[in-house]
Design a protein around this nucleic acid. Structure first.
Length: 848
RNA sequence: GCCCGGGUGGCGGAAUCGGUAUACGCAAUCGACUUAAAAUCGAUGGCCCGAGAGGGCUUGUGGGUUCAAGUCCCACCCCGGGCACCA
C-alpha cells in the first residue's frame, strides 16, 4: 500500500486540474487492507483483551434467498455503525455473520425451478458474501456459519436431544393444515384465506403425530424477565400480549348423570351465579360419550365433523353467527346447585383453558350472542353504577329501572352483585371475585388459577430442506434418541424432494432404514425435519465458539461474550424468533449449559424501507437493488443515505435524489481534504474564524457522540454536514492546521457510517488509520462561549435578540433585554407585571 | 373491538428537560465559471401584508393548563402496525 504522500503525488500528476471523488477506486482499496490484515477478527482469549470491556454487536442473520435487498443494507449499516463506535470507544467487539439457510422458501423455489435447494442456497450465500464485502461491513469472518452445514446442525440436534431428555420435547397428535393436492402439510404462513399458497386448493385439517417443544413451561419467566431487558416497549408489549397471561379461577361443574367433573377456567368467577349454560369445544374428547343415548346424538356427531373440517379462518370469523348443538345433558353449577344445559359450540377453543366454559350471557358478549340465538336464559348478576342507558330507553315510561332491563345486557363492566346469594349481593364485583374463589376453595369446588394464551411450539415439518430430527423408531424399543456420538444425522442428498404425502425423506429408503441404537435390530428414522426457527434460536451462542467440533460451545467462550449487548433486526421478528431464542436460552440455562437468562440485553428494531410509500416488491416493480446503488454511487453513499434519510427505527422512503445529495456531501469532504492536504501551513487570517472552526469541530464531536448512543444516526450525519459546511465557509480564514483538524475530525466522526472514504480522508490528512484511533473527545472549554444570543420576548413573543455575556446575572440579562431596540418599541409605556429570566436562553417580559 | 406507533414547509426530516418552530438534506429560483451543458462554487427561501423597518399567522382538529406548548392534560379526526370468539 502506497503512503499517503505517494498517493497525493499520484493524484497531482494524474488529475492535474480536477480531483474526482471515485468510490470505485477508494472502496476496494480499503476493503483489501481490512481483508488482508483480518482487521475485524477478535480472539476468545481474555489475555488479548488487555482489560478492554467486551461488546457483542449482532444483527439478525439473513435468510439467504436470492440477492440481499435494501432492508439488509439498512440492518447491517445500523449494526456496523454501532460495532465501529464501540471499537473506537475501546471495546473488544464481536461482530460475526452467518446464514439461516434451511427453510421453506428455498425449498419451494427449488420445486419451482428444479434447482436443488443446496445449490440455490449456496449461490445465494455467495451473493450475500460478495455484497457484505462490497458494503465494507466489519465482520469477523473467522466465525462465519450456515445453519444448513452438518457441523452446525449436529449441535442443533444435540440441543433437541437435551430438550427431549429434560421432557421439554414431546410427541403428540395434533391438527395440522393439509393440502390435498400437494399432499403435504403446510406451515400456517403457507395458508392464505384457507387455501394453499402454491396450488390454490382448499386446505384441510388432519390429525398427525407432531413434535412439540414445551415453551409453555416458561410462560411466566418469559413474561416476568421482560422487565430486565432493554428492548423497545412495543416489542415487549407484543410479547406480553402473545403470552397472554390471565388470572382467574378453575371451577368444577359436575355432570351428575355420568358422574364426571368438568373443570372450566374463568376470569370472572364473580359472575358464577349468572352461568345459565355450559359449552364444550368441538374437539373435546368426551362429547360422543356425553351425547350417547340422547336424542341429540346424531346432531352432535354431524356438528363435530363439520366443525373440525372448517378452516380456522372460517371458524374465527367474528361476523359469523354463533352455532352449536345441545348435548342433552346438564351440569351442576357449584355455587347454587342449578342444573344447566350442556352444549357443543365452535366458539369454544380446545387449546385454551380446559376446552369447556361456563356461559354467562348477562356479562359476556359471546355467551350473550349464543344465548340469543338459542333462546337461553340471560340473567343479570352485576349492576353498574354508571351503565349507559340503552339507545331506545324512554325515561318517562320506565323511570329509573332501566338498569334492570335485559335490553342493556350484556354488561361487561364493574359494579355491584345482584341476584347471586345473600352473602355476596351488594358487594363490589372485584371484592366478590376473591370472596367467591375463597368459598370455592373451602368447598373444594374450585381454586384460583392462571392461564396463558401461549401454546407449545410445534417444531416438526414434513419437508426436506431442514434439520433432521435425531430420532429412530424401533419395533422393539419404540422411540430411541440417536446417541450423541452418532450425530449429526445428515440430511441425505436426494433428488426428489417434492413433498408427497409424508415427508420427502420417507422416500429415501436407504436413509430411513437403519439399525436401532439400543438393540441393533431393524428400525426407521424420523422423517420430519425441524422448523427453521429452531436453527436460529441458538446461532448467537455458536458464534462465540464457531470452530468447536467437540461441543456446541466451550462454556468459557460463552462466558466471555454472552449475552449479546446490542441486537439489531426487523420488528417482524418481535414475537416468534425473539420468543423462541429467549426460551432456548432459559431452557439451556436450566440444563446447566448457560449461566445467563436472557440472550439479548438490548434490542433495536429498524424500520422498513419503502419506495413511493409502498413496500418494495417484485410484482410492483419498485425494488431498489443495493448492488446497483453501490455500483453507481459507492457503498459509503448507500450506507450513509439509508441512515441519513430518517430515524432508523422508523420506515423510510427511498429517494434517488436524496442519494445524490449524500454522494455530493461525501465528494465535498474528500475533495476539500485533498486540497487541504496539499496546502502549505498558513497561519489564520482571522483568529476569530479560526476559533470558530475549532469550536464547530468540538461541537460536532459532542453532538455525534450523544447521537450515536441514542441511535440518532440521521442527526449525527447532519452534524458532520454542518461541520463540513463550516470548513468550506472558513477555508481561507482559518489556519491550515485548524482546517486539517476540522476535516480529520469530520472523517473520524463519519467513519462508522462511511468507513472507506473516511479511512481515505483521514489517511490523506494525517497518514494514520482512523479505525485505530480512539473516538474523539470534545474539550469542555471549547463547548462554552463567552457570549451568546439572548432571546428577548415580550408577552411570550420573540421581539429581539442581543449578545449577552455567558456569566451575566439574571439582573444584567433583564437590563440587556430592556435596552434591546425592538423590545423598547413593544414596551412603550406599558407596565411590566412579570419578568421571567432563563439564563443561557431568554428573558420574557409580561406587560399589561 | 383491544394494544402500540405516527400526523411539522413543495418533499424526507430536526427541535434530547415546557423556552428562538422548520437544523441537515432534496427539489426550486437567482448568480459565478463555461462557446454551451454537466460538474462545481456562491446566494435566496414557511405562509400572508409591507418598498423597507416591521407586523400578523403557522406543527391533523377543537378545547384546557402555563409568563411560555410541536412538546403537558381532555375530546375528536386521519394514516400505519400488531392481536383478535383466549372465556
Amino acid at each position: 500500500m502506497a503512503t499517503a504522500a505517494e498517493r497525493l503525488a499520484n493524484l497531482r500528476s494524474s488529475m492535474s486540474d480536477e480531483r474526482r471523488y471515485d468510490p470505485q477506486e477508494i472502496e476496494p482499496r480499503w476493503q483489501q487492507v481490512w481483508a488482508d490484515e483480518r482487521t475485524w477478527e477478535v480472539s476468545n482469549d481474555p489475555a488479548e483483551a488487555h482489560g478492554a470491556p467486551k461488546s457483542y454487536v449482532l444483527e439478525m442473520l439473513p435468510y439467504p434467498s436470492g440477492e440481499p435487498h435494501i432492508g439488509h443494507l439498512k440492518c447491517y449499516a445500523v449494526g456496523d455503525a454501532i460495532a465501529h463506535f464501540h471499537r473506537r470507544l475501546g471495546h473488544r467487539v464481536l461482530h460475526p455473520m452467518g446464514y439461516d439457510a434451511f427453510g421453506l422458501p428455498a425449498e419451494n423455489h427449488a420445486i419451482k425451478t428444479g434447482v436443488h435447494p443446496r445449490d440455490s442456497t449456496a449461490a445465494s450465500i455467495a451473493s450475500f458474501q460478495r455484497q457484505f464485502r462490497a458494503w465494507g461491513i466489519s465482520i469477523d469472518w473467522s466465525r462465519e456459519l450456515g445453519t444448513h452445514e452438518p457441523r452446525y446442525y449436529r449441535w442443533t440436534q444435540w440441543i433437541f436431544l437435551q430438550l427431549l431428555q429434560a421432557g421439554l420435547a414431546y410427541r403428540k397428535e395434533a391438527a395440522v393444515k393439509w393440502c390435498p393436492n400437494d399432499q403435504t402439510v403446510l406451515a400456517n404462513e403457507q395458508v392464505v384465506d384457507g387455501h394453499c399458497e402454491r396450488c390454490g386448493a382448499e386446505v384441510e385439517v388432519r390429525q398427525l403425530e407432531q413434535w412439540f417443544l414445551r415453551i409453555t413451561d416458561y410462560a411466566e419467566r418469559l413474561l416476568s424477565d421482560l422487565g430486565d431487558i432493554d428492548w423497545p416497549e412495543h416489542v415487549k408489549t407484543m410479547q406480553r400480549n402473545w403470552i397472554g397471561r390471565s388470572e382467574g379461577a378453575e371451577v368444577t361443574f359436575r355432570c351428575v348423570e355420568l358422574g364426571v367433573d368438568y373443570p372450566v377456567f374463568t376470569t370472572r368467577p364473580d359472575t358464577l351465579f349468572g352461568a345459565t349454560f355450559f359449552v364444550m369445544a368441538p374437539e373435546h374428547p368426551d362429547l360422543l360419550r356425553l351425547a350417547q343415548g340422547t336424542p341429540y346424538e346424531q346432531q352432535v356427531k354431524d356438528y363435530i365433523n363439520h366443525a373440525l373440517t372448517e378452516s380456522s379462518e372460517e371458524r374465527g370469523s367474528l361476523e359469523q353467527t354463533k352455532t352449536g348443538v345441545p348435548l342433552g345433558r346438564t351440569v351442576t353449577n357449584p355455587v347454587n346447585g342449578e342444573q344447566i344445559p350442556m352444549y357443543v359450540a365452535d366458539y369454544v377453543l380446545m387449546e385454551y383453558g380446559t376446552g369447556a366454559i361456563m356461559a354467562v350471557p348477562g356479562h359476556d358478549e359471546r355467551d350473550h350472542a349464543f344465548a340469543r340465538a338459542y333462546e337461553l336464559p340471560i340473567r343479570r348478576v352485576i349492576e353498574g353504577a354508571s351503565e349507559p342507558a340503552p339507545p331506545d330507553f324512554d325515561a318517562g315510561k320506565h323511570g329509573e329501572s332501566w338498569e334492570r332491563s335485559e335490553q342493556s345486557l350484556p354488561y361487561t363492566g364493574d359494579g355491584q352483585l345482584v341476584n347471586s346469594h345473600a352473602d355476596f349481593d351488594g358487594m363490589h364485583n372485584r371484592e366478590a371475585l376473591s370472596a367467591i374463589v375463597q368459598w370455592l376453595d373451602r368447598e373444594a369446588k374450585g381454586h384460583a388459577s392462571v392461564n396463558y394464551r401461549l401454546r407449545d411450539w410445534l417444531v416438526s415439518r414434513q419437508r426436506y430442506w431442514g434439520c433432521p430430527i435425531p430420532i429412530v423408531y424401533c419395533g422393539d424399543c419404540g422411540m430411541v434418541p440417536v446417541p450423541q456420538e452418532d450425530l449429526p444425522v445428515e440430511l441425505p442428498d436426494i433428488e426428489d424432494y417434492a413433498p408427497r404425502g409424508r415427508s420427502p425423506l420417507a422416500a429415501a429408503e436407504d436413509w430411513v432404514n437403519t439399525k436401532c441404537p439400543a438393540c441393533g435390530g431393524d428400525a426407521r428414522r424420523e422423517t420430519d425435519t425441524m422448523d427453521t426457527f429452531v436453527d436460529s434460536s441458538w446461532y448467537y451462542l455458536r458464534y462465540c465458539d464457531a470452530g468447536n467440533d467437540q461441543a456446541a460451545w466451550d462454556p468459557t467462550a460463552l462466558h466471555e461474550w454472552m449475552p449479546v449487548d446490542q441486537y439489531i433486526g426487523g420488528v417482524e421478528h418481535a414475537i416468534l424468533h425473539l420468543m423462541y431464542a429467549r426460551f432456548f436460552t432459559k431452557a439451556l440455562a436450566d440444563l446447566g449449559h448457560l449461566d445467563f437468562q436472557e440472550p439479548f440485553r438490548a434490542l433495536f428494531t429498524q424500520g422498513m424501507v419503502t419506495k413511493d410509500g409502498a413496500k418494495m416488491s417484485k410484482s410492483k416493480g419498485n425494488v431498489v437493488s443495493p448492488a446497483s446503488i453501490v455500483e453507481r454511487s459507492g457503498a459509503d453513499t448507500a450506507r450513509c443515505y439509508i441512515l441519513f434519510v430518517g430515524p432508523p427505527d422508523q420506515d423510510a422512503d427511498w429517494s434517488d435524489d436524496g442519494v445524490e445529495g449524500v454522494h455530493r456531501f461525501l465528494g465535498r469532504l474528500w475533495r476539500l481534504a485533498v486540497e487541504t492536504a496539499e496546502r502549505a501551513e498558513v497561519p489564520a487570517a482571522s483568529d476569530e474564524a479560526d476559533l470558530e472552526l475549532s469550536r464547530k469541530a468540538h461541537w460536532a464531536i459532542d453532538k455525534v457522540s450523544t447521537d450515536m448512543r441514542r441511535f440518532a444516526f440521521n442527526t449525527a450525519i447532519a452534524a458532520v454536514m454542518e461541520l463540513l459546511n463550516e470548513c468550506s465557509r472558513l477555508r481561507d480564514q482559518a489556519a491550515v492546521s485548524t482546517q486539517r483538524f476540522a476535516l480529520s475530525t469530520a472523517a473520524s466522526l463519519l467513519f462508522p457510517f462511511a468507513p472507506h472514504v473516511c479511512a481515505d480522508v483521514y489517511d490523506i490528512l494525517t497518514g494514520e488509520r482512523v479505525w485505530e484511533q480512539p473516538w474523539p473527545q470534545a474539550e469542555p472549554a471549547m463547548l462554552e462561549r463567552e457570549v451568546y444570543e439572548l432571546v428577548c420576548q415580550v408577552n411570550g413573543k420573540l421581539r429581539d435578540r442581543v449578545q449577552a455575556p455567558a456569566d451575566a446575572s439574571p439582573e444584567e440579562l433583564k437590563e440587556l433585554c430592556l435596552t434591546a431596540p425592538n423590545v423598547q418599541a413593544h414596551l412603550d409605556g406599558k407596565e411590566i407585571v412579570k419578568e421571567i429570566v432563563v439564563p443561557g436562553k431568554l428573558v420574557n417580559l409580561v406587560v399589561r
